[in-house]
Amino acid sequence: MDTLIRVTDAVKSFRETRLSALRTPQEFFDVNRISRPADLNTATSRISYNTRYFSGNYGLIIAILAIYAVISNPLLLISLAFLVGGFVAVNKFGADPLISDRGITQKTLYTVLFCVGLPLLWWSSPLGTFFWLVGASGVLIVGHACMIEPGIESEYATVQDAV
């Protein structure tokens, strides 16, 4: 019951902090504000402002790409399910020795889980998936942040920071 309360509090905290920063799709995909930056300074200032302004949307993009990456790599999905399921099963059922007093203990079960699960995880290429996720989200986020002109409210952001 205590775990359920902590999970509920974590979800509420996430909703209040990250989901409140989400901008509407009409604002995020506003084609009227798309233009090529004039120079590197303009691109840098757009990226700086838009990454803060659209941080919730960019976080959602990263989450969607991460889910896609895990689903599209079935071996990675199987190895993650094996490791997580193994941890849950060992924690739930492995507290007492299974065979007599010196039989299969929880430590032995964790050792077997690591000896089978870690090579399976390594074979499923999680580093390749991670670097694909970093590259794909970086290109999408920097491309969007660079091409979208900041709104009028960006002019007042510097005034509010000075006060």
Rank of each mutant, 00 (worst) to 15 (best):
T51K: 06
D2N: 15
L109D: 02
L65E: 06
R6W: 14
G103K: 07
I61T: 06
L40D: 13
T158A: 11
V159W: 08
T108S: 12
G85P: 08
F93N: 08
G103L: 10
I152M: 14
T111N: 13
L40H: 08
V70K: 12
I152S: 15
V142Q: 03
D161P: 10
W132E: 07
A63R: 02
L75F: 07
V11T: 12
Y58Q: 04
L118R: 02
F93G: 04
F14I: 11
S137W: 02
D30H: 05
Q160A: 11
T44Y: 09
G56D: 11
F28T: 09
N50G: 08
S100K: 15
F54C: 02
Q26T: 14
L83N: 03
V112T: 02
V11I: 04
W123A: 14
Q160L: 15
I34R: 01
R15P: 12
Y68V: 11
A10S: 14
A136S: 08
I34P: 01
Q26D: 15
I67C: 08
A162Q: 02
D9Y: 15
D96C: 12
V134R: 09
T158D: 14
T158N: 06
M1E: 15
Q160F: 14
W122I: 12
G86R: 05
I67A: 14
L98Q: 01
V90P: 07
P25M: 10
V84T: 10
